[in-house]
Write a protein that binds this DNA or RNA. Structure first.
Lengths: 214, 214
DNA sequence: AACAAAATAGTACGACCGTTCGGATCTGTC
DNA sequence: GACAGATCCGAACGGTCGTACTATTTTGTT
């Protein structure tokens, strides 16, 4: 079966082009979180990577395609480092907690010097229609659905009270996360993490089924 | 006393320059909330106002000065339409509530088609040092202090419980507001306002002195 | 080793950027 | 109504932007 598994997995060493393409996107992602998606410039990107503008540009047919590819990579990474690991955690409140904690960790990941790109894009693109905005909205919607879904499971497991509005729960989580970014990145508040953790604990408290304590 | 009051008030009809300057800033404020502070362009601004680029530019010595002036105007307007009216409301929980409600209303004010400029600037400038960022931080800090101060008063009035962490309260309010902007502007969620109101009510519930209900 | 294809570089383009400067036009004051 | 200063315009500067084209080099396959 060795040959079959090889054919099925088909790792197929990435070609040179795919390699540099990946490298470009990785660097662009870090850059975009810091200087924004509009502020991101092909010239600057090429300079950083010691490439020619045109050589870099050839990998993407337009700047918009580049932006979309960056967001695609960011979305995949987020699923990989936040959602997937949380699915390995027991259903119910533990998983909800894992989602939230990994989300904050992702937001502070060293590979994202400017924080979660979707957070930044949320406010940068909220008034600028187009496919980039659409992609961000879709991704955020998926994320909120993931949160709400995890809460729903916690309700079914009897961890959270039955009457809980799971969409409201997801909304409130988003608020805590946004306030966390606000406090840590803009205000440079050293207590930012403690504040977010405290807010989340209070939120959980309120969601638990009656008579249920940690 | 008529003459004295005249001298004291000193309305002094605004000169032509001051008029257009004000008009420029008013329009620039609306524009900046939509397309961002970096995206804001002197050429575009001049075109909108049917002025020459250089004529407009002459009112501000640089683009940075223009950005600062825009934010100064926004800050003044926010104090005028959010903070000041709330100070006319009875101390304690009513005033806290007034602050929050007027804040949401300000965020949706028709003169701010892109929403509160400080919200947008929070995420746009969080990684770009300079006087503009500093100004935003200072303004946001003042706002959070106002919120925390109002909560402190509510504690002293016996409306809120004595052990309340007022800074955490302000932080949580900020989260609710950010989530509101996120839901209404980006996600276009028609329930955005209801979600924010619900979150705020729950927050208040938790803050009240024991045995105190609405 | 040869050759087609893929990847990168070079150069140029029109558009717009923030800014400067000298001159035209307008305002307010005597 | 003249004069000074405020206000505004037009043209131009050096730069950078995204993108298009054509070469040149590198890669992968036979």
């Amino acid at each position: 079966m060795a040959t079959a598994s090889k054919a099925a997995a088909r790792p197929r060493a990435p070609s040179k082009g795919e390699q540099t393409r990946e490298a470009i996107l990785a660097h662009a992602l870090g850059l975009a979180t810091r200087i924004g998606f509009e502020g991101l410039t092909i010239g600057r990107l090429a300079e950083d990577l010691r490439m020619s503008k045109s050589g870099l540009f050839a990998h993407f047919r337009s700047k918009e395609a580049l932006q979309l590819d960056i967001l695609r990579m960011a979305g995949a990474r987020m699923v990989e480092s936040v959602v997937k690991p949380a699915l390995a955690v027991p259903r119910g409140e533990p998983r909800v907690r894992a989602l939230f904690e990994r989300w904050l960790a992702w937001e502070q990941s060293p590979s994202l010097p400017g924080g979660c790109p979707f957070m930044a894009a949320s406010f940068e693109l909220d008034d600028r229609p187009g496919p980039v905005r659409d992609f961000v909205v879709q991704n955020l919607r998926d994320w909120m659905d993931t949160l709400a879904g995890a809460a729903r499971i916690a309700v079914n497991e009897g961890h959270f009270r039955a009457a809980l509005d799971c969409e409201q729960f997801a909304h409130d989580c988003q608020g805590i996360g946004l306030a966390f970014v606000h406090a840590s990145r803009l205000m440079r508040d050293p207590k930012a993490y403690a504040r977010a953790a405290s807010a989340f604990e209070t939120l959980l408290q309120r969601c638990r089924a009656p008579g249920r304590r940690r």
